[in-house]
Design a protein around this nucleic acid. Sequence first.
DNA 1: TTTTTAGTACTAATTAATTAGTATGTCAAG
DNA 2: CTTGACATACTAATTAATTAGTACTAAAAA
Lengths: 124, 124
Amino acid sequence: MRPKHNTLTPQELEIMKLVWQRGAATVRDVYEVLLQRRKIAYTTVMTMMKILETKGYLKKRRQDRAFLYRPAHPKSQIIGGMIREFIDRVFNGSVEPLLVHLVKSRHLNEKDLQKIVRLVEESE
Amino acid sequence: MRPKHNTLTPQELEIMKLVWQRGAATVRDVYEVLLQRRKIAYTTVMTMMKILETKGYLKKRRQDRAFLYRPAHPKSQIIGGMIREFIDRVFNGSVEPLLVHLVKSRHLNEKDLQKIVRLVEESE
DNA sequence: TTTTTAGTACTAATTAATTAGTATGTCAAG
DNA sequence: CTTGACATACTAATTAATTAGTACTAAAAA
């Protein structure tokens, strides 16, 4: 059975990336990184992380005074869901047109292709 | 120079797909197709197509009483922009992790790979 | 000619996503 | 003990996306 749409909004994704990278993070951890990228309030980050928890992307437990957030699911699963959603939405579910585009736009060249050929060989 | 972010919202994309398919379409054409998929008002479709025109995705000219809308840019260019945006947002711009995911999740198999190998050979 | 139909223009309500303010509590430093 | 730093909870404003209503116009049908 096909798993339920698993898709993060852009800002949610930005935060999840940081949490995945670190394994676990507090609001402050995330806030400090985001602040270097753009103007943002501490409470904004807090709200977003609470939303991510509500939606089931993050789990929290108290560490000292603050909450420590961890991913509730492996990154690969969530990213996989996003790829699936993208392919469904843009290409009605078929991968091939995506690959054709990648090749034609030169995002995918001989070298990349070699890597992936090896990957498929390994995984079969 | 990297072209500006070219990205359609889900509903915009749904409409653009229909216009691309037909080459040109009136509000009514699109409305009738969408109505079979879900409950939607004629004026909703009209508003969306007007927005798409404002954003530069569609051009219109009058045909009899109604406007006939045509794509302002080739589909490949717009879809290419969406792929680029997705890869930037999800994979910080590198294609490889996308391919790795596709292979591991079995969305991409030996057969797909053969096709694309041939494509790359042709395009080089 | 009157009425109906099909279309547009303009306006606005609703929902989701994003952002952030205010009140409050607690711990630690002075 | 009081003050400041830091955290959460709760509330709310803003913006973008989506949806649709109402008024009006022109053509077609009766």
